[in-house]
Design a protein around this nucleic acid. Structure first.
Lengths: 240, 240
DNA sequence: TAGACCATTTTGGTATACCAACTGAGGCTG
DNA sequence: CAGCCTCAGTTGGTATACCAAAATGGTCTA
């Protein structure tokens, strides 16, 4: 399963990073050529990406052509809400942990969130802010929630990152709000209040979904059109 | 993708129905022999089942043996909670629908729940009660929630059914409670109260998870041991 | 010149042969 | 008789050849 994992992760990375733009064609044989493997493992990886929603198919049944899933307003909203509910579940579990484990967790959460606050004030690079936000959320999901929630989270969260990366600059303005919401989650976990923790996490993402929807409504659905704007100068390959 | 789907659904049906007991070995070649296809489509279907959690792997990396996912208390609880949150999301969307669409939906929900109440009082067959409960939940998920939620629901809900089928008799005693909870969901949707609808749906499943955990704690984790009790008379094949 | 039609190419799906790693049982040895 | 070792069988992974259907692009005709 090692080779197919490699293909899976490499392609996923390309998609999340936007180097394979939404709507771009993804052809088995092209991936094969790029990766130097046979079609079999590539095919497995593509199936997995397709099932998880990174890749979609267009055309009727029988013959399907694979494309990178477009980024639409509705899809983004749904994605954020799903992630929010998964993390809500995780937060609930986190707040139900024994007191000492909770204390440990809260300590780590506060540390990360403090770093995020500082980085936000000092206008750190978007990438840095991103990673810190990511780390905060991972902290109360990984190792806390059950294996199924963690697996779903790992599969779905990166898809929400596609949206986040695309609208970074606009979304970063709201970072102070996020920091406050993070503190809400943390303190609910600290108090051992599962309902409040769940609610705080869901609210955080619900707000993010609303912000995203507003941004997309204003700026239009980016990414879909990028594909058509080909023929530019020396960019990296924009399709496979 | 047609052949793959056939294999996928047939195997999934066998697993959910319990004809392939938890822990049973699932060998590619055996499935190939049974289905009369080549390994390629079978392999795809198995990968999908594995990713969704119907099938698990045992043994270290490199060589993995596939088995039907065991039914444990922790896994059941997690599964029920996840489904509950997905349906909570759906219920929330349902309650946010325009008034006329909501009215239509509520009408169908009430009809199904009424049927369920009657069937419960008249001690209808477990299968019938099951299908009605299933239909109720499907009604406010399918066609209401977004495509991603629906897809996740379709992949995960059947796994919770494995538990439900295994503990039918015990779970059916609680059916009147379920009927009441269904009415809570329905009326929240009728009132157009998203928060209440979400909460009602989640509560329904949260209670179900608690009931299931209690039953499993009392009766032990069934299913894992069934596998060992092979060699009996003319049962259908219990492994592939 | 515009439109329709046909051949070529490209696509994903399938079957199959080969491979390395692991399992487990049997025999051999002390 | 116990323990170890070897070897065959089984498993999942990979590469590859073949296939049908659909998109593509060019040409021929009205």
């Amino acid at each position: 399963m090692d080779n197919v994992s490699r293909v899976y992760h490499e392609l996923r990375e390309l998609i999340v990073a936007g180097q394979l733009p939404p709507g771009a064609r993804v052809a088995e044989r092209a991936v094969v050529a790029r990766m130097g493997l046979s079609r079999t493992p590539v095919r497995s990886a593509l199936h997995r990406l397709q099932q998880e929603g990174f890749i979609g198919s267009v055309g009727r049944a029988g013959d399907q052509r694979l494309i990178v899933t477009p980024l639409t307003r509705g899809d983004g909203r749904e994605l954020f809400l799903i992630v929010g509910h998964l993390e809500g579940l995780a937060a609930r579990e986190a707040a139900s942990l024994p007191a000492d484990a909770r204390k440990e967790l809260v300590k780590r959460l506060r540390a990360v969130n403090r770093e995020l606050a500082v980085a936000s004030r000092t206008k750190a690079s978007p990438a840095r802010l991103f990673d810190l936000d990511l780390e905060f959320h991972e902290t109360y999901v990984e190792g806390v929630a059950g294996p199924r929630v963690v697996a779903l989270h790992r599969a779905i969260k990166p898809q929400s990152e596609r949206y986040a990366r695309l609208y970074v600059n606009v979304l970063l303005d709201e970072l102070p709000t996020s920091v406050k919401e993070h503190e809400m989650i943390t303190s609910a976990i600290a108090k051992g209040n599962p309902v409040a923790a769940q609610h705080a996490a869901e609210t955080n993402w619900h707000n993010a979904a609303a912000r995203l929807a507003a941004v997309i409504a204003e700026h239009g659905e980016r990414g879909i059109w990028h594909v058509l704007g080909e023929g530019r100068e020396g960019r990296e390959r924009r399709s496979l």
